[in-house]
Design a protein around this nucleic acid. Structure first.
Length: 598
RNA sequence: CGGAGUAUAGCUCAGCCUGGUAGAGCACUACGUUCGGGACGUAGGGGUCGUAGGUUCAAAUCCUGCUACUCCGACCA
């Protein structure tokens, strides 16, 4: 403490905080590092980053590395607390593993080579290799193989809330994609797959509880189940327009999937031909947009013809992929097809001209000299237009099975808004999301590599199947802001707001009555268990205090003014509201109790 | 890792083209006025102009190397 006595009453008067039963302290703004800034920092491009800097939550130390200031840390710790409580409720046990890990373990799991430069490696003074842990599968598996030996101990689920380091090539968006970040990671160990599936379900529920309690609008989304199958993996996404992932979900069921993975279902039946096939000169129509504009052709009566490399199994060479003019090719789906080379490679203009004799702007299925796959939606088209495989010419009025045989069909495109849900219930809505959690049935990948085994009831050694379950704790904070803000600042969900109540006197210097009432309310509210930020700064005017409270996003505020004191009232306003409520001084504590039911 | 850009006060930026003793606004300190939605005046404090070298009588300014940071792309269990 900078000044004053360390003894008795002197300390009490100067001490900026009082402790509330929640464990988070109330604060006097005059003794607190608010660190708010008016101007938007130049190098922040996303709102959450801008607001976290402006609200005095974080400061950059170096690229992808951030200091957490008191306000930010309060939020972070509230998120951690909820996660911790729900993980404990779900039967997981908390541990803490080192950030620094011996490289030996990564050699043993085989990931040392695979992980690449994202794994930050270094050598200690004895010449031994270490790395900063980007994740902790190796360490936990090593711990468990040494400590757990009997099937009777299983299943067990361990978690930690710990700093991770990934040497991202390009850290960005503030705390959303930083190099150092905090993650809750859990690892479960089982005797068999059925037990793993049980714990997976428990974690799914726990995650739902966590994000419910955090007050976020989120979706569990089916993730790539490729190598594992079944309900092997879900991502939890916080919905926000700025999200990096597009996710598709049904309005009629629980179906939700990353757009990259969502099956695109075609509906309806192919109409009978009503137009004759005709060859049209289209010298200036090289793109779908030009075709639509110049010939007033509906875009869903056009077809895009994309030429890619065929797989070796299909004999190499080129293959044409056809999607409707208004649809997009999904590269992930395409390269999984047996006929298509993986990774997907588009043919060059020269290759196309050599194989087909026309340029990319004039391609189509009619008289196409190379193999062809069509999207399901394309198979249902009639009377459509496509290139004639002659420069400057298109066919209009094309009909399958009349003008040419229907090629093989496949799911080639991205699902779009309004598509039928793949589970047959409802239609797809597409929103953007921020991935904040991921649960995964790992299987025996690590337990096998590290020989984590247990004896079963027959005394036989069994490799333990594992599950792993992560939440990006620091990212949750940013995602919450992306989802909840306005032009004035952050609008925290109650559960993770740095403070619950802002107590703001209009003019402390002029009004001893305001001061007296504020002091009284501050101690009453604190005693009642509320986390109050009492803005007792004398040098700041009302406007500054109000906008700071709004920027920081404190959900409830109480303004104490001379004006109301004669009538014995104070002004209450919730962060989302635009009007004040006058509340009698004697009732304000109870009023807040009623409004802040947790 | 490829492409582009930036680096001047705590923050946002001007000055650089055309070389000549370092600037503004915000923030900070003191005093005064004001004070129910980011007040005003006066006086201050604060910068080896990212760094190393070169050209020059003289470099924030021109040239070269290096470093850091940002953006776009690739990458991201």
């Amino acid at each position: 403490m900078p000044r004053g006595t360390v003894l008795g009453a002197g300390l009490c008067l100067q001490w900026p905080l009082s402790f509330t039963p929640s464990g988070f302290s109330a604060m006097r703004a005059s003794r607190y590092l608010l660190a708010t800034v008016k101007e938007t920092p130049a190098d922040a491009v996303v709102v959450s980053h801008q607001l976290m800097l402006r609200a005095g939550m974080i400061r950059k130390l170096a690229s992808g590395l951030y200091n957490w200031l008191p306000t930010g840390l309060r939020v972070l710790q509230k998120v951690e607390r909820i996660i911790r409580e729900e993980m404990n409720n779900a039967g997981a046990q908390e541990v803490l593993m080192p950030v620094t890990q011996p490289l030996e373990l990564w050699d043993e799991s085989g990931r040392s080579a695979g992980f690449g430069p994202e794994l930050l490696r270094f050598v200690d003074r004895h010449g031994n290799g270490f790395c900063l842990g980007p994740t902790h599968e190796e360490v936990i598996t090593d711990l468990v193989r040494n400590e757990v030996h009997s099937y009777k101990q299983l299943p067990m689920n361990f978690y930690q809330i710990q700093t991770k380091f990934r040497d991202e090539t390009r850290p960005r968006f503030g705390v959303m994609r930083s190099r150092e970040f905090i993650m809750k990671d859990a690892y479960s160990f089982h005797l068999d797959q059925a037990s793993l599936a049980d714990t997976y379900d428990v974690m799914y529920t726990a995650y739902s509880n966590i994000f419910d309690r955090l007050g976020l609008n989120y979706r569990p989304v089916a993730a790539d189940t490729g190598s594992i199958g079944g309900s092997g993996s879900h991502e939890f996404h916080v919905l926000a327009d700025s999200g990096e992932d597009a996710i598709a979900f049904s309005d009629g069921s629980d179906y939700a999937a990353n757009v990259e993975l969502a099956e695109a279902v075609a509906e309806g039946e192919r109409a009978a031909p009503s137009e004759a096939l005709r060859l049209v000169d289209t010298p200036d129509a090289k793109t779908i947009a030009e075709l639509v504009e110049q010939f007033s052709l509906p875009i869903d009566k056009t077809v895009k013809t994309l030429i890619v490399a065929a797989s070796e199994d299909a004999g190499g060479g080129l293959i044409a992929l056809l999607v409707r003019g208004d649809h997009e090719l999904n590269a992930l789906k395409a390269e999984k097809l047996p006929q298509v080379a993986a990774p997907l490679r588009f043919a060059t203009d020269e290759e196309i001209r050599a194989a087909i004799g026309a340029g990319p702007g004039s391609l189509g299925p009619v008289k196409l000299p190379i193999p062809c796959l069509v999207d399901r939606s394309v198979a249902l088209m009639s009377d459509f237009g496509a290139g004639a495989n002659v420069d400057g010419k298109h066919y209009f009025g094309i009909n399958w099975e009349r003008d040419l045989p229907l090629p093989d069909t496949a799911d080639l495109r991205n699902a779009v808004e309004g598509d039928p849900s793949p589970d047959g219930k409802g239609r797809l809505t597409i929103k953007r999301g921020i991935e904040v959690g991921h649960i995964f049935q790992l299987g025996t990948k690590y337990s096998e590599a590290l020989k984590a085994t247990v004896l079963d009831e027959n005394g036989k050694s069994v490799i333990m199947p594992m599950g792993c379950y992560g939440i990006g704790v620091t990212r949750v904070v940013a995602a919450a802001i992306e989802q909840n803000h306005d032009e004035r600042g952050i609008i925290w969900p109650e559960a993770i707001a740095p403070f619950q109540i802002a107590l703001i006197p209009v003019n402390l210097k002029k009004s001893p009555r305001e001061r007296e009432l504020c002091e009284q309310l501050y101690s009453e509210l604190t005693a009642a268990g509320f986390e109050v930020l009492y803005d007792d700064r004398e040098k700041e005017r009302l406007g500054v205090k109000l906008s700071d409270a709004e920027l920081i996003g404190i959900p409830h505020r109480v303004v104490v003014a001379e004006r109301g004191l004669d009538d014995g009232t104070v002004e209450y306003r919730a962060r989302r509201d635009s009007d004040n409520t006058l509340v009698p001084v004697g009732e304000i504590v109870q009023f807040l109790r009623d409004n802040l039911r947790r």
